[in-house]
Amino acid sequence: MSFIIDKLRKIFPPSIHSFNLEMDRVLRAIEEERQSIVSLSQKIDDQNHLISNELKNISLQTSQIKKQTSEAVWAHIFHDTIVESTWLKDKTFSPGRWAVGYPYLYVMYRILNEVHPKRILELGLGQSTKMIAQYATSFDDVKHVVVENDKSWIDFMLKSFQLSERSSIVQLDLEMATYKEDKAIRVYKNFKEQFVHSKFDFILIDGPIGSDMQQYSRIDILNILPGCIGEDFVIMMDDCERTAENQTTLEIERCLKRYSIPYKRGRYVGQKEFVLILSKNLEFITSM
């Protein structure tokens, strides 16, 4: 600014009044230019914000399309895999939304068909139950237990398929529990008392409902680990695209590490995601 004033003094030395008038004009011009720059900067910021939001929308849509495409591919893989199954008689399933997805059904079928687990614990009655119940019916050395809280849902599901004596449903009410710093986690009431003395080689976790949980979800299994698993085991946790379920899988891993139990972790992605935590000798399941 001093440079401008000095220059103006050289131009208008005779008249201080003229100099002051010219100074006012120049200062107004400078202020107008500043306002113009501020306005332009705001327009650029607004435009960048719009572009940023549009890019986020495009990224979200691309992610959804990718998941839907992946789910469709898994559907084909699943149907091709079960087409000649000798024990899966009813091959009609309705995956998605609250139910498990096609990658879950595919991996579950492969485990049942090739690993042949004998003691199965399933948390949450649904599409997976339709498959496991048929598996249990076909092999007399299998015991299958399903935990479900909703009596009306149990009655509805049992209208569409029958369980053999090798499958049973344990109806447990829900309550809110505390785990670490999380003070409100939905769990099955008396779950620990029901299963603390049981052992399983295949545990499937798709309940209770956990979409509204914040830090942890479906922590029931933590109350009976590691005593509930044998030397060979598979734990499947559905809905691991959500933070709370994913955090619970990390707690399962911490428990296994604390007791020096070797394990492997795997993840499958379709419309939803699920995590596998299993004994090291079954590592092939993570890449099927």
Rank of each mutant, 00 (worst) to 15 (best):
A244V: 06
F78G: 04
I82V: 09
H79T: 14
E32S: 14
T248N: 07
Y188G: 05
F274N: 00
I58V: 13
V107E: 01
I209C: 10
E231S: 04
M236L: 09
Y268W: 09
Q215H: 11
Q47F: 15
K180Q: 14
P262K: 03
A244N: 06
V234E: 00
Y268N: 01
V275I: 09
A177S: 12
G207M: 04
G124W: 02
I65L: 13
V73F: 12
L174V: 11
T137Q: 14
D141M: 03
S70L: 09
D155S: 12
R97H: 11
G270N: 00
S260R: 13
S70M: 09
D45N: 15
T178H: 11
L125Q: 02
F161A: 06
F202L: 08
S85I: 02
L250N: 11
I205E: 00
E148C: 03
V107M: 05
D239N: 02
N113I: 06
F195T: 05
K56F: 14
Q271V: 07
G124M: 04
I44R: 08
W98F: 08
S164I: 03
I30H: 10
Q247S: 15
L40W: 11
R97L: 10
L88M: 09
S138W: 08
D141Q: 01
L174A: 13
I58G: 09
I111E: 02
F12H: 05
A184K: 15
Q68N: 15
V142W: 07
T92Q: 12
Q64S: 10
E193G: 08
F202E: 01
V146P: 00
T81I: 07
T249I: 00
R267A: 04
D140M: 12
I219F: 06
L50F: 15
F19N: 01
N190K: 12
W153C: 06
S2F: 15
E31P: 08
V83C: 10
E32L: 15
V269F: 07
F12P: 06
I5Q: 14
R265M: 04
M1R: 12
E122L: 02
F156W: 12
H76Y: 14
I229F: 03
I58L: 12
C255P: 03
S39W: 13
I285R: 00
Q171M: 06
E84D: 11
K89T: 08
M108A: 05
K199H: 11
R25P: 10
R258H: 08
V38Q: 15
V73L: 14
E148Y: 03
G210D: 03
K7L: 15
W74T: 03
I154N: 06
M157A: 12
D206I: 01
S59N: 15
S287G: 08
D239H: 03
T137A: 14
R242I: 00
I285D: 00
V107L: 04
D24N: 14
Q171S: 10
